[in-house]
Nucleic acid binder design. Structure first.
Lengths: 237, 237
DNA sequence: TATCCCTCTGGGGTAAACCCGGAAGGCAAT
DNA sequence: ATTGCCTTCCGGGTTTACCCCAGAGGGATA
């Protein structure tokens, strides 16, 4: 029994036919169309292996994985993602138990790679797509890894908030916010006003650009944050 | 004879099998792996119909279409895209001849939609994916459509440039840059400092956020702009 | 021709974003 | 406990981005 959760029909079909060819003895293949269905199906059917697309309506693949692993820690999880976004690796690291079994494959992976990953997870190993190896490296590097404080500030400026608005929202001084931003700029390697005379940057926008480029943040995540923000400010007033 | 240009093997195979099933009498199906190959193949084979993925290495689908249409104006073009990004519609509108024959389908289209689009273009009609209908509407709406000047400014702030840097680059006054930005903010509907007391925004970052959300700009386009920028500044000094 | 819109220009002001140094707190090491 | 290190926070300054006003030239439309 293998469960596939993906909102795109084409990807589901592709994966299903691939699994049917190579893993016919692992029982039937079930499908889910969003994160919530994936959790429901997983808790009911208790499959040993679940494929989860990261970007799904209602409930992201990460959160679905969290809920599934809470109830059934021995479930093997293979995440599917379109991009090697650092946001996701970052979140996933917090969710997966230290010795959990999981795989991470990009959607542009070859068929062989997917089969390999599936085989690995089924036999209790992990399989990480080579494309995100350096991303994981970066999340563990002191000089470039962002702290939670810096990450919060990053999300806020990416949404277009002012220092004052960020301060009010996070219960900080404006100075504290600026301090966070300052260290954020430093870690992203953005030159200040004095240095690097040939290229002038608006650090705030530059930080957003570079972070998006490196996959520290991405649009769909930001959209989630924005709706969350709108709800809280509505409740707050 | 039908030519398919896409850098993703999976998408090529999907499209190829789909075409073979439904359009077997249209001759063989040729493939290209990037934009440059697509142009070369098209000029050599002169196929009546070409599928072009927008996001390809070396040469984007848009530019490939431009070159192909320059040499063979009667070629039918069907663009493939992952997202309903306004940038592309914007560019495509300039490239395609007024009465040119083309289609635009998103990659999450159903098989039926692709067949429909193919049939339409082969018989001399256009086929536009419903998902981007409103985008096209927006590109023709006075109040929300961005002018070239505003678009240039948008790209620059998205890259993280300061007013001064933008002015120097576009040979303008800082005042002119600010003027462009002001009208840009207005069209995006971003409130200024005085108005809307509950929500404060850094207009600059907010503009980038909203534009990305609405598909006016996207990361891969910005990356292209940045390399172009780096080259020109290198040549300029 | 008259009208509209876009764009650039100018002066002059306010508030926000950024720079400097310094100091309180947690954490690890020895 | 002391020393170091890092993160986070604070205060006093400078620069940049944004605001309001008004006006003029170019281009398209009618």
């Amino acid at each position: 029994m293998i469960l596939i959760a993906d909102d795109e029909e084409r990807d589901r079909n592709w994966l299903k036919s691939l699994l049917k060819e190579n893993f016919a003895d692992n029982g039937p293949i079930e499908e889910a169309h969003d994160g919530q269905q994936a959790v429901d199906q997983a808790l009911k059917l208790k499959p040993p292996l679940v494929f989860l697309d990261i970007k799904m309506p209602h409930l992201s693949g990460i959160k679905a994985a969290e809920q599934i692993l809470n109830a059934l820690p021995n479930t093997g999880i293979i995440m599917l993602s379109n991009f090697s976004d650092e946001v996701y690796v970052r979140q996933l690291w917090k969710v997966v138990p230290p010795n959990g079994v999981f795989g991470y494959v990009l959607k542009n992976a070859s068929n062989e790679q997917v089969v390999e990953a599936t085989r690995a997870v089924l036999s209790g190993d992990c399989w990480i797509h080579p494309g995100i190896a350096r991303v994981i490296q970066r999340t563990q590097n002191r000089a470039t890894n962002l702290t939670t404080a810096e990450y919060e500030a990053l999300v806020c400026i990416a949404l277009g908030m002012t220092d004052h608005a960020i301060a009010k929202r996070l219960y900080l001084t404006e100075k504290a916010v600026q301090s966070r931003l300052k260290s954020l700029y430093a870690k992203l390697g953005i030159p200040g006003r004095g240095e690097s005379h040939d290229t002038e940057f608006n650090q705030r926008c530059r930080a957003v650009f570079l972070s998006t480029k490196r996959g520290l943040i991405n649009q769909s995540e930001l959209d989630d944050w924005e709706t969350k923000l709108a709800q809280e400010t509505k409740a707050g007033t």
